[in-house]
Amino acid sequence: MQLPTTQAIESIGSYANGCLEGAKALPLTGKGYQVVRSERKRYFAHSDTISFIQDLALKSEMKLNKQLLIADMSLPQGGRFSHGHSSHQTGLDVDIWLRLLNKPLTEKELKQPYSISLVDKPTSSIRDKQWQPEHFELIKMAAKDERVARIFVNSAIKEKLCEEENRNTEWLRKVRPWWGHSAHMHVRLKCPPEDKNCISQAEPPEGDGCGYEAQSWRVNPTPQKKRAPAPVMPKQCTEMLNTL
């Protein structure tokens, strides 16, 4: 699907099994951010997500003096990517690289962008040379936004955030460890209240998730022998496809 539908904007279904009516395109450059790998056409989203990105980028530029690189959001009509993600289907997910910039990339640099991992894979620990105080502040700003449901990061990043937060840890409840996610944070927004066909994820577990819970993610996952069958697509999404 190369273009959004012309219907009113609505996130339909769940983050990993849904679609998006009336998607909006994030401008490829804006105040405090640039979109990377735009040729993938993954810069579409719900208008709430667009507003969140623009707000966070502006705060990052003003408070942290850092420019953001925005990676995968959603496709023009949401739904499944051909590769790379099982979520990002309803326009409410966005990947933000943790390569924070002092100035925007040049046109030449933007053609061959690269991310930077904050985690040393063999030791599952933070790479001190790459970690910046601004990483802490950026993730905290995102987590404290009322629109945000969850933020997925590598467990080593979660542990580092827990270590550095010595006051109110309530916001850390939203920051969830997940495999990979060492070079970007995956921000997931809540279902908009008016989108009645959007399926919310359960609230994160009680507590800040620090200590044992974060450390338990250091164990490598057991490889799955078989991929689970794809779930049945919501009726509204199949109807979108059938109108083509």
Score class of each variant (00 low, 15 high):
residue 109 E to Y: 15
residue 203 E to M: 06
residue 227 R to F: 10
residue 156 A to D: 07
residue 220 N to M: 15
residue 68 L to P: 02
residue 73 M to N: 01
residue 56 L to P: 01
residue 121 K to I: 09
residue 52 F to T: 01
residue 211 G to I: 09
residue 98 L to D: 00
residue 125 S to P: 03
residue 186 H to M: 04
residue 146 E to N: 08
residue 184 H to W: 04
residue 180 G to M: 08
residue 221 P to Q: 14
residue 100 L to Y: 13
residue 141 M to H: 08
residue 145 D to E: 04
residue 101 L to A: 07
residue 38 S to Y: 07
residue 29 T to C: 12
residue 67 Q to T: 14
residue 63 K to S: 10
residue 56 L to N: 00
residue 126 I to M: 06
residue 189 L to C: 05
residue 24 K to V: 12
residue 8 A to T: 13
residue 144 K to R: 15
residue 98 L to S: 01
residue 197 N to M: 05
residue 192 P to H: 10
residue 12 I to L: 07
residue 143 A to E: 00
residue 33 Y to T: 14
residue 83 H to E: 13
residue 178 W to A: 13
residue 171 W to S: 02
residue 215 Q to N: 07
residue 235 K to R: 10
residue 211 G to W: 07
residue 133 P to G: 04
residue 229 P to C: 09
residue 94 V to I: 15
residue 67 Q to A: 08
residue 52 F to D: 01
residue 45 A to N: 02
residue 63 K to P: 02
residue 114 Y to L: 11
residue 22 G to M: 04
residue 74 S to V: 05
residue 84 G to N: 03
residue 209 G to D: 03
residue 239 E to Y: 03
residue 144 K to W: 15
residue 107 E to G: 09
residue 199 I to H: 07
residue 109 E to D: 10
residue 75 L to P: 01
residue 209 G to T: 00
residue 188 R to G: 14
residue 147 R to F: 05
residue 73 M to R: 04
residue 159 E to K: 12
residue 32 G to L: 07
residue 204 P to A: 05
residue 179 W to C: 04
residue 23 A to W: 12
residue 240 M to R: 08
residue 56 L to D: 11
residue 209 G to W: 01
residue 71 A to D: 05
residue 194 E to A: 15
residue 8 A to D: 14
residue 161 L to G: 00
residue 107 E to H: 10
residue 125 S to T: 13
residue 77 Q to L: 09
residue 202 A to D: 12
residue 51 S to K: 12
residue 174 K to F: 15
